[in-house]
Amino acid sequence: MNARLIGASIKRMTLARQRRFVTPHPDETLEALAARALPDAPLADAVDQIRAWNLHIFAMRKPRGLMLGSDVVFVEPPLT
């Protein structure tokens, strides 16, 4: 479950679409997660987008940006 897009998998089960997310792999860096989640985007852009879509990790948390294994990391902006 770590490595897949949970929202996408659930969509196949006829649930309403929700905002897609991933969870970090053990010791995964932000750059590695961004490359995994947004493989078609330039890395710098992907990192910036992940930061912008996850203020609960990259703005509100202290220490700021500490990614935890249990985190929900959104890979797209809010749907509404």
């Binding site: 479950m1 770590n2 969870t23 970090p24 792999h25 053990p26 202290k62 500490l66 935890l68 294994g69 249990s70």
Partner: peptide
């Protein structure tokens, strides 16, 4: 100390 509690360092496979 303001540090996340231990359960938050568990990845999803641990909870699974």
């Amino acid at each position: 100390n303001g540090r996340p509690v231990p359960s938050r360092f568990a990845d999803f496979s641990e909870l699974d």
